[in-house]
């Protein structure tokens, strides 16, 4: 309790004392010291959106699990020979559907190829197609979406309708049709997926840009004499980046699945390229008798996609202000 002020007692008991509202109470000056008005806090560590996000992400186990898995997948994709000495294309029909043995832990498939080696080498195609497509989609989508959102009016109408047209065509259907007529390799698969996959990112970007472009700092830059393209590039896009990154991370998994689906259908990568989708397709003949032939490539595909999706979730929690709990 503070010391009793001279104007009257401020004790809690009732009785013959005056009503509380008649008492002029004031706190002891030492108890509630007066601070200078609005003094900057120089002691706290400087932070930014990215630092905040990092601080939030680094304590989550899900982040570390998915990060380790992603790094592993990327290492496998770049340096498959670090993980196996067996050539995936050197097959001996004598080993057809052979079980696991020393040096061949997963056994052999129908052609007598080593399943472990094929699973390891299959990562490259998936990761390359997934990464290339994501980069392409993000670039095209964010540029078109950014321009549409920022300039508005007829520019927005035209770009958004073009996006709607591509959005209306199912990604796989379009890929099936176009892959029939063009040369099939990692690059063309990525290209086709990019051409039909960008509208989603464009829409997200357009929305994010719309919410940023009316900010006062944008008006302030206009009053500064900054040109419109410069404002878009310097102020608007960096502030719209968070949702784009989130969608990009999640869709990387989706594109890996799309590549596998195309290869499974026999219209993705040619059989000469080792890929999980192709191997899953080849394994279906023996699902009942030799399930391990299907299990390993499918499991690798599942884990890879899962790790990218988990990473996307963690990144969204860290970057999306609405999902942030502080």
């Amino acid at each position: 309790m503070p010391e009793t002020p001279p104007t009257g007692p401020s004790t809690m008991s009732h009785g013959d004392q005056p009503r509380h509202d008649q008492v002029h109470f004031f706190a002891d000056e030492d108890r509630v010291a007066l601070l200078e008005v609005d003094v900057p806090d120089e002691t706290s560590a400087p932070t930014s959106l990215w630092k905040d996000a990092w601080n939030q992400v680094k304590v989550r186990p899900l982040f570390w699990i998915s990060a380790v898995m992603i790094v592993l997948v990327i290492l496998v994709a770049i340096f498959p020979y670090w993980f196996t000495n067996t050539e995936p294309r050197q097959c001996d029909l004598a080993n057809s559907y052979g079980g696991p043995e020393a040096g061949h832990p997963f056994g052999f498939d129908r052609q007598g190829c080593d399943i472990y080696a094929r699973t390891i080498y299959g990562a490259r195609a998936s990761v390359i197609v997934g990464t290339l497509t994501t980069i392409g989609v993000t670039l095209i989508g964010s540029i078109i979406g950014g321009i549409a959102g920022f300039y508005g009016k007829w520019v927005d109408s035209i770009l958004s309708r073009i996006g709607d047209v591509f959005f209306a065509i199912p990604l796989l259907l379009a890929a099936i049709v176009t892959m029939q007529v063009i040369d099939r390799n990692v690059w063309t698969v990525a290209l086709v997926l990019t051409v039909f996959g960008w509208p989603q990112i464009a829409r997200i970007t357009r929305g994010a840009v719309l919410s940023v472009k009316n900010s006062e700092f944008v008006t302030a830059s206009q009053a500064l004499g900054l040109s419109k393209p410069a404002i878009l590039a310097k102020h608007v896009m960096p502030n719209a980046l968070a949702p784009i990154i989130v969608i990009a991370t999640v869709s990387l998994g989706t594109f890996i699945v799309a590549e596998a689906t195309l290869s499974y259908l026999g219209i993705g990568l040619p059989p000469t390229v080792v890929s999980w989708g192709g191997d899953i397709s080849n394994a279906q003949a023996a699902i009942r008798t030799n399930a391990q032939v299907l299990f390993y490539p499918a499991g690798a595909l599942g884990l890879t996609v899962l790790s990218f999706m988990m990473m996307g979730d963690v990144v969204r929690d860290a970057l999306d202000p609405k999902a942030r709990t502080r």
Binding site: D21, H24, F25, L34
Partner: peptide, 10 residues
Amino acid sequence: YRGNVVESGP
């Protein structure tokens, strides 16, 4: 002020 009642009265 800063979580405290510093003064009260008529």
